[in-house]
Design a protein around this nucleic acid. Structure first.
Length: 571
RNA sequence: UGGCCGAUGGUGUAACGGUAGCACUGCAGACUCUGACUCUGUAUGUCUAGGUUCGAAUCCUAGUCGGCCAGCCA
C-alpha cells in the first residue's frame, strides 16, 4: 500500500516537469489537440548556441514525450540578414544535438518561412479587404514620431482611412516593385492609443528590394516578424508556439492577427519561457559575431565559443548538453545558470563511457637507472574502471619514460603525494619508482630525473602491495606520440561579461587557450575524430579536426575535478 | 507620469493551501594503483508589510527590487 502510493507520487513527479508541459498535458487531456506539434524557428543569421539548445531540447523534447512532431523551420523573412551558410550550419547542429530523437519527432524536411510568402500575402489582402490593414506612406522616421511613447499614446497615420480599393491597389503595386525601400508599409489597423505599443498599428509588410537566399528576386516586400510568425505557426498546424520572454508583449498581436483571419482552428498558442543565460560567456549573436570577426577566437566553432558547433568540436557529447538543458529547467524567471552545472553534465556523461588513456602534457624525462638498457615489456592497463566490459590494453614500458611536471616537486608543498627527491610514487599499472637524482642543465632547468624502480612492485609482484602516497601517469619515451594539446579555459574572466554597459571585450580571459607539446601513449595516434577519451588524472580529450596523419592535435574537452591543484595552473 | 512579467540557500530547480526537498557549488571525512569516480556528513533559502485561513512559499492587497516593450530586427 505504502509502496503503491510512493510509486504513484514518484510517477506523478516524473511527469510534472515544468509549466509548459503542464499546459500541453492539460490541452491533450481536454481534447484541444489530437496531436502536439511544436517548432524550432531559428533565423538563419548566425550560428546556434547553447541558448538555442535549450529551446531545441524543449521543443523537440515535448514533441517526443507527447508523441508529436517538431518542425525545424527557418524564419527567413529578412533577406538583408540571412545567409545560406547559416541555414546549413543550423541543420547540422540541430541534427547533431537531437541525434536519435530526429527519427521519432523531427519533420522530415527543413521548412522555410519563405515557402509561405504567397500564402501570407493572401492573408494580408484578406486583412485589407476586411478594413483591418492599410498602406501607409509614412517613412520610418515619421512612423516613429507618430507612434507615441510608453507613456504617451500615438496618433493615427494620415493614411489610416484610405479606401479598401485604394489599399488593395497600393499593396499590389508595392508587391510589383513600384516603390523604393521604405517608401510604404502595410499596417494593421488596431489602436494607436493602446498601452501596448505593438498594437499601435504595427507594420505587417515592408519594402526590401533585396535578394533573398531562397526566393531570389521574386519578392520585394517581406512580412515582418509579427505578421509572419503566427501565420507560419498556423500554416504548419503548430499547437504550442514556444518562445522567449521578450516576445510576451507581442502575444496580443499574435492572437489579433489569427483572430481576424480565416485560419484553421484551434489556433496555435504562444507561451513564453526564460532564455538560458550562462555565466562566464556571452550569448548574443551580435557579440559572438564580433568575437569571430575581430579574431578573438578562431571561428564560430572555436572550442571556447558557446556555440553548438564549438561544443561538438571540443568533444562535448550531445547527450551532455541535453542533460544540462534538462537540469537548467524551464521557468519564467530570468536566471543566470552556473557554468558548473554544464561542466557537471559533461563529466557525468563522459566518466562512464570515455576510455582511459595516458597523456603527459608537460613532459619531464625520467631515466630508471636500474632498469636494463634496451629492455621493454608490456603492461596491462585497464580501459575504464567504471565499465567492466571496457577491457584492457597493452602499454609498453621501458627504461626512459615521461611524467608530468606537475607530478614532480623539488621542494614539495605540504601533503604533496607525488614524486620528490628521495620519495616514491607508483607509476600506474607499473612499478614503484624512487627519485634518486635531479639532473639540471647549465641554466638550472630540470633536464631529467634519475630514478630507481622496485622490480617486484608490479601488479602480482612480491612488493605490489606496498603503499605509496601517490600514483601517477606516464608515457614510455621511445614510443610516445608527439601532440599539440589545446587546453581551454573560460572565455571571460568575469561571470557577466556583458552586464550593464561594460565592454565585454575587455573581460576576455587572456588565458582561455594554452597550447602544450605533449607526449601521448601510442594508441592515441589512431583515435578517430569525434571520440572522447580520458587522459588519466587530467581530463577528457578528443582529437581536433586540425589533425592530419602526421600531426596530432587534441582538445581538452574538460578537466577532471581537481581538489588538489586548483590553485595551480590549468593542465 | 504607462503597460506587461517575475522574485525559494552562492547557483539552478521542486513543493499546485498541509513536514521547504533535489541537483550543482563550497567545506569536512571515508575509499582509491586516477588527489577522479563513489559514499558519508555539513553549511546556506521562501523579497517586505499587511490580509484571508485551523494552516500560506503557494491565495488577496500594497510596496520593494529586477526584467521586457517606443525597428519597416527576430
Amino acid at each position: 500500500m505504502a509502496n503503491e502510493q510512493a510509486e504513484t507520487s514518484a510517477e506523478t513527479e516524473a511527469v510534472r516537469r515544468d509549466f509548459i508541459r503542464d499546459k500541453v498535458k492539460a490541452d491533450l487531456a481536454a481534447g484541444v489537440h489530437a496531436r502536439i506539434v511544436t517548432r524550432f524557428p531559428p533565423e538563419p543569421n548566425g550560428y546556434l548556441h547553447i541558448g538555442h539548445a535549450k529551446s531545441i531540447c524543449l521543443n523537440f523534447g515535448i514533441a517526443r514525450e507527447f508523441g508529436g512532431v517538431c518542425n525545424l523551420r527557418m524564419d527567413d523573412t529578412n533577406p538583408t540578414k540571412e545567409e545560406v551558410e547559416y541555414v546549413e550550419s543550423i541543420q547540422a547542429d540541430v541534427d547533431w544535438l537531437i541525434d536519435a530523437w530526429a527519427k521519432e519527432v523531427k519533420s522530415p524536411t527543413v521548412l522555410f518561412a519563405s515557402d509561405y510568402f504567397e500564402q501570407m500575402y493572401g492573408y494580408a489582402v484578406d486583412l485589407v479587404r476586411k478594413g483591418l490593414a492599410f498602406v501607409c506612406d509614412l517613412n520610418a522616421e515619421d512612423f516613429a514620431k507618430t507612434r507615441g511613447t510608453t507613456t504617451v499614446p500615438g496618433t493615427d497615420s494620415p493614411f489610416r482611412d484610405r479606401a479598401v480599393e485604394e489599399n488593395l491597389d497600393l499593396l499590389e503595386r508595392m508587391r510589383n516593385g513600384e516603390f523604393p525601400d521604405g517608401a510604404k508599409t502595410l499596417r494593421a489597423k488596431i489602436d494607436m492609443a493602446s498601452p501596448n505599443i505593438h498594437l499601435r498599428d504595427p507594420a505587417l509588410y515592408r519594402i526590401r528590394n533585396a535578394h533573398h537566399h531562397r526566393t531570389g528576386n521574386s519578392w520585394c516586400i517581406y512580412p515582418t516578424y509579427d505578421f509572419a510568425h503566427c501565420l507560419e505557426d498556423s500554416i504548419e498546424g503548430i499547437t504550442h508556439s514556444l518562445c522567449t520572454l521578450e516576445f510576451e508583449v507581442h502575444r496580443p498581436l499574435y492572437d489579433w492577427i489569427l483572430d481576424h483571419l480565416d485560419v484553421p482552428k484551434p489556433q496555435p498558442r504562444q507561451t513564453e519561457f526564460a532564455r538560458l543565460s550562462l555565466n562566464y560567456t556571452v550569448m548574443s549573436k551580435r557579440k559572438l559575431l564580433q568575437l569571430v570577426k575581430d579574431g578573438h577566437v578562431a571561428g564560430w566553432d572555436d572550442p571556447r565559443m558557446p556555440t553548438i558547433s564549438a561544443f561538438r568540436r571540443r568533444g562535448v557529447p550531445a547527450s551532455a548538453i541535453r542533460d544540462f538543458c534538462e537540469t537548467a529547467g524551464v521557468t519564467r524567471y530570468k536566471s543566470q545558470t552556473d557554468l558548473a552545472l554544464l561542466e557537471h553534465s559533461i563529466r557525468q556523461t563522459l566518466n562512464p563511457i570515455a576510455p582511459r588513456r595516458f597523456g603527459v602534457l608537460h613532459p619531464i624525462k625520467v631515466v630508471l637507472t636500474n632498469y636494463p638498457e634496451g629492455k621493454t615489456e608490456e603492461l596491462e592497463a585497464g580501459n575504464n574502471p567504471e565499465d567492466p566490459d571496457a577491457g584492457t590494453r597493452p602499454l609498453v614500458f621501458g627504461r626512459e619514460i615521461f611524467i608530468d611536471q606537475d607530478d614532480f616537486a623539488e621542494i614539495p608543498p605540504p601533503k604533496f603525494h607525488r614524486l620528490k627527491p628521495g620519495g616514491e610514487v607508483r607509476l600506474k599499472f607499473g612499478y614503484i619508482i624512487k627519485c634518486e637524482e635531479v639532473v639540471k642543465d647549465a641554466s638550472g632547468e630540470i633536464e631529467e630525473l634519475r630514478c630507481t624502480y622496485d622490480p617486484e612492485s608490479k601488479r602480482g609482484g612480491a612488493t605490489a602491495g606496498r603503499k605509496v602516497k601517490g600514483t601517477i601517469h606516464w608515457v614510455e619515451a621511445a614510443g610516445a606520440v608527439d601532440a599539440e594539446v589545446r587546453l581551454y579555459d573560460r572565455l571571460f574572466r568575469v561571470p557577466e561579461p556583458d552586464a550593464g554597459d561594460a565592454n565585454f571585450i575587455e573581460s576576455l580571459n587572456p588565458e582561455s587557450l594554452a597550447v602544450t607539446h605533449a607526449k601521448l601513449e601510442p594508441s592515441l595516434a589512431a583515435l578517430p575524430l569525434g571520440e572522447c577519451v580520458q587522459f588519466e588524472r587530467l581530463g577528457y580529450f578528443c582529437r581536433d579536426r586540425d589533425s592530419s596523419t602526421d600531426r596530432h592535435v587534441f582538445n581538452r574537452t574538460i578537466s577532471l575535478r581537481d581538489s588538489w591543484g586548483r590553485q595551480g595552473t590549468s593542465g
